[in-house]
């Protein structure tokens, strides 16, 4: 009854979050109040049941699909490293956006996102020039599009 390692982790993570959801649902009390009136937890209990059925179905499917082949740990790490950097860039953008304002945050986001797509290029100088151009032009376009055209006020940041 073997399954792929990635499937095993997926089932564990899904089960963990379902457990957290069950704890939250227990906090809401019994599914029916006195007089058989449905409470806040009646629907969450139903979807918990659906989730458990889904996880069992996924587990059975994983057993059926298992062919004995596993992905190499190195390739998994490499495939995660790039999107993880992407998450960090966006996370830092949110932080900078509220503390330092639109301009600095958007220049940061555009520069490093451009680098993420250009870094495999052999010409480092070209990579930096493209990223620099992108990080200047796109924030300007964004500013005119949102603030000037649609009057969406972008934060100036708490520093100034």
């Amino acid at each position: 009854m073997k399954i792929k390692r990635s499937d095993k982790y997926t089932i564990l993570v899904l089960s963990f979050f379902t457990l957290i959801y069950i704890v939250g649902t227990i906090d809401l009390g019994a599914p029916f109040n006195q007089g058989a009136e449905p409470s806040l937890s009646v629907f969450p209990w139903i979807i918990i049941c659906a989730m458990i059925i889904g996880i069992i179905g996924y587990y059975i499917g994983s057993i059926k699909e298992y062919s004995g082949e596993e992905e190499g740990e190195k390739s998994v790490f490499l495939s995660i490293a790039k999107p993880l950097s992407g998450c960090l860039i966006i996370g830092l953008f949110i932080l900078l956006f509220f503390f330092l304002g639109y301009w600095i945050a958007s220049v940061f986001l555009c520069f490093f996102t451009a680098i993420m797509f250009e870094y495999e290029s052999s010409n480092m100088r070209k990579t930096v020039i493209i990223a620099a151009l992108v990080s200047v032009l796109i924030p300007i376009i964004g500013y005119f599009f949102y603030q000037k055209l649609f009057h969406i006020r972008l934060p100036e940041g708490i520093i100034w």
């Binding site: 966006i90 986001l109 555009c110 451009a114 493209i130 969406i152 972008l154």
Partner: peptide, 20 residues
């Protein structure tokens, strides 16, 4: 089209969209 130009634009529009 160069993806290093396109995706920074998408990233910015997405995040400002979530904010606005």
């Amino acid at each position: 089209i160069r993806r290093s130009v396109l995706y920074p634009f998408i990233a910015l529009v997405a995040m400002i969209g979530a904010f606005s």
